[in-house]
Design a protein around this nucleic acid. Sequence first.
DNA 1: ATGAAAGCGCTAACAG
DNA 2: CTGTTAGCGCTTTCAT
Lengths: 327, 327
Amino acid sequence: MITIKKIAELANVSTATVSKVLNGKDQYISEETRKRILDIVEKEGYIPNGIAKSLKIKKTKTIGLIIPDVMNPFFAEIARGAEDAAEEKGYTIVICNSDNRFSKEEKYLSILQEKMVDGVIMTATESNTSQTIERCNIPIVLVDRDLQMDKPIGRITVNNEEGTFMATSYLIGKGCKNICFISSKIVNKLSKERLQGYKKALEENGFPVDENKIYLESFNVETGYKGVNELLKKGHMDGICCGNDLIAIGAIRALKEKGLKVPDEVKVIGFDDISISKYVEPPLTTIRQPIYEIGRESVNMLLSIIEKGKTKMHKVLTVTLVERGSS
Amino acid sequence: MITIKKIAELANVSTATVSKVLNGKDQYISEETRKRILDIVEKEGYIPNGIAKSLKIKKTKTIGLIIPDVMNPFFAEIARGAEDAAEEKGYTIVICNSDNRFSKEEKYLSILQEKMVDGVIMTATESNTSQTIERCNIPIVLVDRDLQMDKPIGRITVNNEEGTFMATSYLIGKGCKNICFISSKIVNKLSKERLQGYKKALEENGFPVDENKIYLESFNVETGYKGVNELLKKGHMDGICCGNDLIAIGAIRALKEKGLKVPDEVKVIGFDDISISKYVEPPLTTIRQPIYEIGRESVNMLLSIIEKGKTKMHKVLTVTLVERGSS
DNA sequence: ATGAAAGCGCTAACAG
DNA sequence: CTGTTAGCGCTTTCAT
C-alpha cells in the first residue's frame, strides 16, 4: 500500500506538505512543489487512507440508516432519497434492516457507534428503543415513526391522523356506508394516529365505529389479503381505508378473487403512494406522502445537526389525497 | 469520549490487557482482572473505536454495494439478500446508487477504496468500468451483469439467453404467432443475451425475426408502456416477451388501456420475478431468478475471496419459468 | 499473568 | 514556503 509518507519521499518534501496539497490547504505552497506532488500522486495511483484520516479528524463522513426493510418500496424510496442527499454532501450511507425488531435496532445502533458514523437516521419501531437512543451519543433523526425523547433529536413526521381522516371522509363522500379499516397492530404513534383518523371521520359523519370492521396485523400485502377475507366473514363492506398501499394492494387482490368489483362494489384507498401504486389495477387512490423528499430531508436535517449544531428539530410534511381508480 | 486508556487506568492495568480481554484473547488473563475490566467497561458504557481498530488491523468489516438503484425492486432484493448475509458474518454494507452511469460507478469505487472497505459487490453497467475495476486493488464480485476481466474477480450470473428462450418458446407453445420483445437497449452482455434467447426461440420454431416487433429502451415500467404503444402502431401482436418484470407491468397497463385482454388477446411474460409480480393483475408469468439468493451469494463469494483467498470464482444460478396468469 | 512500546496513516500546531 | 512533531485509539510483539 502506498502512503503519504512514500509520496513525501518521492517528492522530497515532508508528509505535512503532501497533506496540505492533498487537502487544498495549499495557499502557502509553491506552485512548483504543488504540481510535483500532484504528479507523483497521480503517477503512483495514490489513494488516501480515509480510515487514518477519520481517526485523526474524528469524522467519518458516513451516516447510518436503520429501516425495517429495504425490500419494502416505501423504505427503498426513503433510502434512495437519503442516499442522493448524502452523496451530494459528500457522505456515504450504511444500510441496516431491522425487521421492526428491537434486538436488531439495538445491535445496529451499537455497531454504528463503533463504526463512528457521524449520525444515524432511523425508523424506530419499539418504544423501548427510546432508551437505547437516549444512551446513544451521536446525532439521530427519526423518520416515519415518532418517539418522545428527552434528548434533543431530529424528527420528521407526517400528519397521519389527518391522512386517514381525509381518506375515510373521501370514501364517505363517495357514498360508502360500510367502511372497513385494515392496518398494522404495531403499538406505536403512527398506527394509533392512522386508526384514530379513520374513527374520527366515521364519528364526525354520524357513522358508528364497529370493531368488526377493523382488522389489524402488519403493513404488508398479506395483511390486506387476509384482512379482506376475515372482514368479509363478519359482514358487508363497500369501502376500505388501508393503513398503507401494500395492504391496499393485497386487499384489492382478495376482493377480485371474491368477485367483488373495485371500485364499483368496494372502494379502496391506500396510504403512502409508493411508486408502484400507480401501476396496479385499478391504479390506487391513496394518501400521498412525499417519501423521497422525506429521505432527502432526513439527511439534510441530520447534517444541520452535525455541522451546524442544531438540535431538537421537528419537521412535519403534508399528506395529500391523490385520486386514481380504486375509489 | 472514553477510550481503552481510560478503562486501563480505572482497572489499574495496561491498555494491552484491556485490549486482550475485549477481544477474547484472554487465555492468560486471570479471571479476577478479566471480570474487573469487564465490569468497568460496562459501568462506563465504553464503546470501542472501530476506526482506530481498523487502522491497526487493516480490516473495516464493511462491504461496498454498487447497484443502479435501490428503488428498483430487483436491486432492493439483491441489497436485502446481501445485507442479511453480511450481517450474519459481522459485516456492514455501504450502499451506492449508480443510476447505470459510469461516472458514478467510478466515483463510488474510488470513495469505497478510500473508506478501505474490505471488498465491493457491484452491478457494472458500462464496459469502460472494466478498466476502473482492473485498477482497483480490492476484491470485487460482479452481480447481475457480467464483464470480461483479466484480473481475477468473482462473478455471479444467470443464464439469460436460456431464460428468454424458455419464455418465448412458452409463448409459442401457447399458440402466439406475433411475439414482440421489449427490453433495454443498454449495450451489455445481459441485454444481448436476453435478445438473443428471444430470436433463437423464434428461429428454432420457424418464425421470422422482425425488427418491427422489437422495442428497446430501459428496464423500467415506462418502457413497457411506451413499447406497447409504439409496437401496436407497427402491427398486430399476440404475445410479448419482456426483458424484465417492470417492463411487463408497464406493457400490461398499456394493453389494458387499449382494451386488449391479457392473457386472452395478448400474452405477456416477464423476467426476474420481483416480489410484486405475483400481486399485479393478472399475476405475472415470468422467468424467475433467485434474486434474494443472488444477493446472499454475492457476499458469501466476496467473503470467501477476502477471507479464504479464493479468486476467479464464477457461479451461474438457474432461472425457472413460473406460470401465473399473464400468459 | 501483565505491561512497555512501537506503529497503523494521517493531520495540524508550531517552528523556522 | 516547508518541516518537525505529537498524537488520534487501538493491537501486538516481546519482555518480564
